[in-house]
Design a protein around this nucleic acid. Structure first.
Lengths: 160, 160
DNA sequence: TATTGTTATACTCTATAACTATA
DNA sequence: TATAGTTATAGAGTATAACAATA
């Protein structure tokens, strides 16, 4: 007993009924995680040639959009701790993409501003990220579905 | 110059125009990340009383659904490394939720099975996770929108 | 040679706590 | 006392690489 000899090749396993995760697939959170992993990997791939990480791209984006924002405000918008911001701002400042400027009224805070180089890189990054999302979601969702997904996720992430 | 004296209270900042992340909000990936963070936190919160983590809940779920699955197959389904599975399976086995059984034909692999205790806990966890998603998304999305979001995310995460 | 499970290790991301300098 | 920024540290999650047993 126990299959005395099987002359099937090793890929018998691949022909065997594949293991399923159907029960997990019923949960939004599970699909959100798997989706996000794919999206983040591809996003990192396209940001890498620009010398940006996902976190630094996000931070640069908010600084471009909000000149003279402080590190604390930046941390608040991105929902991470002030201590974590220091590393991100250090990296962006080290690459001359943003500058830490002292403010006249309060010598504790910095007013963060994107440098011309930072604004140029951000424009490039914005185009790259847009192309990445189009290329990634294009084969899966049509324009309407993509807008719908964006809208639903915006509502969920805004109801934080 | 430079505001000689400002007798506004310290919450002048709070009345100031709040910093925005509108540019980032245009990207699906950004909203996906923020949404997932909220969902994961709440999921962990409800799984904690059951002694489960998100990862062990997922692994238990797949084992319940696929009796006699091997650790490598399990890792493949959950898209993580074999080495990472060892820790998860150790934890589940240590809590007597699954068992590692030797298979007759191949002494390298384990056939993983949920114990009766594991199946009972999984049933409870399934109900808890379902309630968590209903409570979390209920105030934000109606039933149709929730099904739509699930369907869109399933398509994205399946097109991996 | 290839595969399963294992161990040790390292890396990323993020959080916590304590400190400083300012207010 | 409270806040902005900083530092050091630690934890979670996951990946890489090398190894033993087995095929």
């Amino acid at each position: 007993m126990a299959r005395p000899e099987k002359n099937e090749p090793a890929d018998a396993d691949r022909n065997a009924p594949t293991a399923t995760d159907d029960m997990l697939r019923a949960f939004i959170g599970y699909n959100m995680k798997r989706s996000f992993i794919v999206v983040r990997e591809d996003l990192q791939r396209v940001l890498d040639p620009l010398g940006l990480k996902v976190a630094t791209f996000s931070a640069l984006s908010v600084v471009v959009e909000n000149p003279d924002i402080s590190q604390s405000q930046l941390a608040q918008v991105l929902k991470l701790e002030r201590s974590g911001m220091v590393v991100l701002v250090d990296a962006l400042e080290g690459d001359d993409l943003i500058s830490r400027n002292r403010v006249p009224g309060d010598r504790r805070t910095y007013a963060l501003r994107a440098t011309p180089k930072g604004r140029r890189l951000w424009e490039k990054a914005r185009a790259v990220v847009d192309a990445h999302e189009t290329a990634l979601f294009g084969p899966i969702l049509d324009a309407g579905e993509r807008a719908l997904l964006l809208s639903l996720l915006q509502r969920v992430s805004s109801a934080l």
